[in-house]
């Protein structure tokens, strides 16, 4: 349904999705492989940024601007998660 008429915007969104999915795989490989826990936190943070980008693309693709609220919430949760992990590491090992 989305792909029936391929306009410029839809092509741009789909190619952006393609690039973002490749980057998701790269970030996920760092999440699995990361030698220490802070590496994994950095990779997780990057994955959430990529998800914000995916939501932005999806908002344009479906033309429903209400999805932008999800991006707000996701950015907030990413920040809280990062801070919580950092504080956890500090309390746990120091």
């Amino acid at each position: 349904m989305i792909l029936q008429e391929l306009t410029l915007i839809k092509g741009a969104v789909l190619s952006a999705f393609f690039i973002l999915i490749i980057s998701l795989f790269l970030a996920f490989s760092r999440l699995v492989r990361g030698p220490v826990l802070p590496d994994r936190i950095v990779a997780l943070d990057l994955i959430v940024s990529l998800a914000v980008g995916l939501i932005a693309g999806y908002t344009i693709l479906t033309e429903q601007s209400i999805f932008l609220n999800t991006a707000v919430v996701l950015a907030l949760i990413a920040f809280l998660g990062t801070v919580a992990f950092a504080l956890y590491l500090e309390r746990r090992w120091l």
Binding site: V13, S15, A16, F17, S23, L46, G53, A56, G57
Partner: peptide, 12 residues
């Protein structure tokens, strides 16, 4: 859109 996705790819 495409340049933002490319910057994210560079980051990954």
């Amino acid at each position: 859109l495409v340049s933002g996705a490319l910057f994210m790819f560079v980051a990954a």
